[in-house]
Simulated scan of single mutants.
Amino acid sequence: MKESLQIDNLKVEVYETSDAMGMAAADFVQEKLSAAIEEKGSANIILATGASQFKFLKALKERVIDWHKITVFHLDEYQGISDTHPASFRKYLKDRILDAVQPKEVHFLNGDADDLETEMDRYAEILQKHPIDIACIGIGENAHIAFNDPPVADFKDQKLVKSVILDEACRKQQLGEGWFPSLDEVPERALTLTIPAIMACKAISCVVPDERKAEAVYNTLNNEINTDVPATILRRHEQTRMFLDTASATNL
């Protein structure tokens, strides 16, 4: 570790490389999962997607974890695309970790369901029955968490899952990461866990590499806690750890 700091309740760790960052986050998540399994015989986890999670998921897949006792959820999914679409978050997680580790259960949020209201209610009901031991998240270039972009972020949301309009900065990020061939093909809407759903998790691992996230990281740690910078809410969670590399910590 290069350095560590604490902002309000949020513990922040900076690593020299994204590989070291990913391994440290995997160790943290392994520790939380193992403690939950030891305490109650099972664990529940939320996994994130996107380019920022590559190194972390690779490291997590290599950890010795009793996945047969773990139930997996995920943060969000685009509306209107199937689980075979190259940008589908369901496909992302199957390809990068789930097919390899074979968890006890996996609950996907189906963005192409025929009845999205019913689908959101279904997912929220399952979430309520599985208190989450650790959520693995990132933050966007606009400092969103999940798909709670600044225009739709609500710290007091009454729902656990909702349908949102993606703002332009978010859609440009998805294009820039190479998930879609053109901005026109980036969906305008998505289903997402809300901020209260994420904040209700017992622990949160927030992995944020790359210089393109440096401004969002700075704003998250320095701005007033409000929905203009949704990730600032993480500073109120007592069991959140943010993992950075030197590039994402450039502005600190």
Rank of each mutant, 00 (worst) to 15 (best):
K2C: 02
Q6W: 03
V14I: 15
Y15K: 01
T17N: 11
S34D: 13
A36P: 04
I37E: 12
E38M: 12
G41C: 01
G41Q: 09
S42I: 07
L47H: 00
L47M: 07
F54Y: 11
A59N: 03
V64A: 11
I65Y: 05
H68M: 03
I70C: 06
T71A: 11
V72A: 09
V72K: 01
F73M: 08
L75F: 00
L75A: 12
G80S: 05
G80W: 04
A87M: 07
Y92I: 06
A100G: 03
Q102R: 15
P103R: 09
P103E: 05
K104C: 03
H107A: 03
N110Y: 01
D112G: 02
D112T: 03
D114P: 03
D115T: 10
D115V: 05
D115Y: 06
E119M: 06
E119V: 04
R122W: 00
Y123C: 05
A124L: 02
K129Y: 04
D133P: 00
E141H: 04
N142S: 06
I145C: 06
P151E: 03
P151T: 10
K156R: 11
Q158R: 08
V161M: 02
K162A: 08
K162V: 06
V164R: 03
I165S: 14
K172A: 13
Q174S: 12
E177D: 15
P181Y: 00
P181A: 13
S182W: 00
L183P: 04
P187I: 13
E188D: 13
R189G: 02
P196E: 09
P196V: 10
A197E: 00
I204A: 11
P209W: 09
R212S: 05
V217D: 03
N219H: 15
N222V: 08
N223T: 12
N226E: 09
P230W: 13
P230N: 13
A231V: 08
I233M: 13
L234Q: 07
R236L: 14
H237S: 04
Q239S: 15
F243Q: 02
L244M: 10
L244I: 09
N251F: 11
